[in-house]
Amino acid sequence: MRLLKWLMGSTAGFMLISCVTINIYFPAAAAEKAADRIIEDVWGREVQTQPKSTSPEDTSELKQTLPIAMQLLNWLVSPAQAEVNLNINSPAINALQAKMKQRHEQLHPFYQTGAIGLTSNGLITLREASAVPLKDRNTVNTLIAEENQDRKALYAEIARANGHPEWESDIQETFARRWISNAAKGWWFQQGGSWQQK
């Protein structure tokens, strides 16, 4: 990170515009790793560990579209980028994670019955109301609302804590994929607007 910043500063004179473009390099692989760590903790060991689709491809695609003047910088940046790691160890993140972990015990049966499903944007929703006993309906609605608030706060906080508030949507998108990927067999998730079961 520091090297990246230093480079950005020292090359700012002749690559003012490119400096802004640097932010494209969202550390996708690190984000996935971070997401998996949080998900494993929140959901516990039950979740499946699946081979990850890492994302150097994503960034290399971006590289190729950049002007030649950028190539030098990219080459300089890459060692720094390899060091990029997402820190997910702030007290705020830990507090959210602990809350979500605790809530998961209550949510778990509703994932199992398919009452709650994972949405494609990294949140959860009531998928099948009739699978929830009437007396639990409002409890479940509250749990879902609270979980989604915590999830949104988590995505924003990871971005902010790592000094890139603009990464929030990338982080949310990464989490969305990883929640689904880590979901246990039988759980429901949204894909392309329709519901599917793992």
């Binding site: 409002n138 609605n141 509250t142 609302a145 609270e146 989604n148």
Partner: peptide, 12 residues
């Protein structure tokens, strides 16, 4: 009343 504000600061 409560059921109308799930997850908000008025929900608990």
């Amino acid at each position: 009343l409560q059921p109308f504000f799930p997850g908000s600061s008025l929900s608990r």
